[in-house]
Nucleic acid binder design. Structure first.
Length: 268
DNA sequence: CTGGATTCCTGCTTGC
DNA sequence: TGCAAGCAGGAATCCA
């Protein structure tokens, strides 16, 4: 489940790709292209001028209005290989060959992810929520979007139109750190809880970026290497195990349609 | 508008 | 041991 820290890690893996030119781009299946404002061939000969992350999206700007945007869904991988390496696994949907002897592989078994060829990036991201690590994501903003909402607080922080980049793993981890049960109606949080949740979200995401993301099953970084934050997870995937804080058993319940992990004793 | 359910997809896990 | 059913999940879409 590539979320903000995983996409950020992949982005950082690609610093040496900046200014390399696309020699050609191949698609093994075209239905992973969700929208194309221009033909893929238009990227041939163009350099990757800027590579950046927005929420769970990775954007490659090839100059002007030529943008390749990738979302990894839940099983997607995006990584570089030497161009003479030929052993590639199943479900490779896109290969972009660059002039620095690297090829960029897009692989996605479940195909929940996709690729967009976009001219107007600003329009594309118009409805995406705030970046949780930016300063304008603060207790004030969180309070504003929480007010009068009855949905579980976990569902709210997973809503990409409000906050972009948090997925199931970091929602559970942030709520544990904040001591808040995931099924609490969003509007019932106190000012102190809102402040704690805001800090927890930032702390958990930053800590995971330091560890190069969480490899629970599918995720790999831009060099096809596993991350390390799975060793620091306190609740996600730890149901029926002991809480690291109080020793009681971690619960798992479906909340908002998502498997949710929490400690009944530490989270209220 | 809000909130909940449904849909897409494959691979791993579970149960008989 | 083998096979089928169940489950997982991001985000769009649909419905009440």
């Amino acid at each position: 489940m590539p979320e903000l820290p995983e996409i950020e890690t992949i982005k950082r893996s690609f610093v040496n790709l900046i200014n390399s030119k696309v020699l050609r781009i191949e698609f093994n299946r075209y239905d992973i292209i969700r929208r194309s404002d221009f033909k893929p061939e238009e990227l041939h000969g163009k350099p990757a001028e800027i590579i950046y992350r927005r929420g769970k999206y990775l954007v490659f700007n090839f100059g002007g209005h030529l943008n390749l945007i990738v979302h990894l869904g839940m099983s997607g991988r995006l990584y570089l290989m030497e161009d003479d390496q030929s052993v590639i696994g199943k479900h490779v949907h896109m290969i972009a060959y660059f002039n620095n002897h690297k090829k960029l592989i897009y692989q996605d078994a479940r195909r929940f992810g996709g690729v967009w060829l976009i001219n107007d990036v600003k329009g594309f991201f118009a409805r995406l929520g705030k970046e949780p690590l930016e300063d304008d994501f603060n207790p004030q903003y969180l309070g504003d979007i929480i007010r009068n909402r009855k949905i579980p607080i976990k569902s709210l922080i997973l809503d990409q139109h409000l906050i972009s980049g948090i997925g199931n793993i970091y929602a559970d981890e942030a709520l544990f750190e904040a001591g808040i049960k995931p099924d609490r109606p969003a509007g019932s949080l106190s000012d102190l809880e809102i402040q704690r949740l805001c800090e927890s979200i930032k702390n958990v995401l930053a800590h995971s970026i330091e560890q190069r993301g969480t490899t629970f099953r599918d995720y790999r970084d831009g060099f096809n290497q596993a991350g390390g934050f799975q060793n620091y997870l306190k609740v996600y995937g730890r149901h029926q195990q002991a809480c690291v804080r109080c020793g009681k058993v971690i619960s798992r319940e479906v909340i908002g349609g998502r498997g949710s992990h929490f400690c009944c004793n530490c989270q209220r």
